[in-house]
């Protein structure tokens, strides 16, 4: 599996899959998990582990699985993998998810 974040990453966000249906979700500033990447909380890498700890404790973790941090730059995920997770498969245009980067 591809690395989610390089050690040189300046900014990171937190993602997981939803327990019920496996849908990709992102952790927000208000402590919820949402489908839209644009709502994801992006933090400096120095604070990323604290974010992971907060999000995977107590109720926050109850309805999600396999949370992890990934690198974000210029308001979008850096890796192809995370772009595909945010936008949906590239091979079915009708399965493409609404996507807006965080810089907009």
């Amino acid at each position: 599996m591809a690395q989610h974040a390089s050690k040189h990453a300046a900014f990171q966000a937190l993602t997981a899959n939803r327990l019920l249906d496996g849908e990709v979700v992102y952790f927000t500033e208000s402590g919820t998990w949402v489908e839209d990447f644009a709502a994801a909380l992006v933090v400096e890498s120095a604070k990323a582990q604290d974010l992971l700890t907060r999000a995977t404790s107590g109720d926050y973790e109850a309805h999600i699985i396999e949370p992890y941090l990934f690198e974000v730059a210029d308001g979008v995920p850096v890796s192809v993998r995370e772009i595909i997770r945010a936008k949906g498969p590239t091979i079915h245009s009708h399965f493409t998810k609404p996507f807006s980067d965080k810089s907009v």
Partner: peptide, 17 residues
């Protein structure tokens, strides 16, 4: 490939297409 698979490093299906 990377359109679906958690283990993949790259997409396969678009290349086949």
């Amino acid at each position: 490939g990377l359109d679906y698979c958690n283990l993949a490093n790259a997409r396969s299906i678009p290349l086949a297409q």
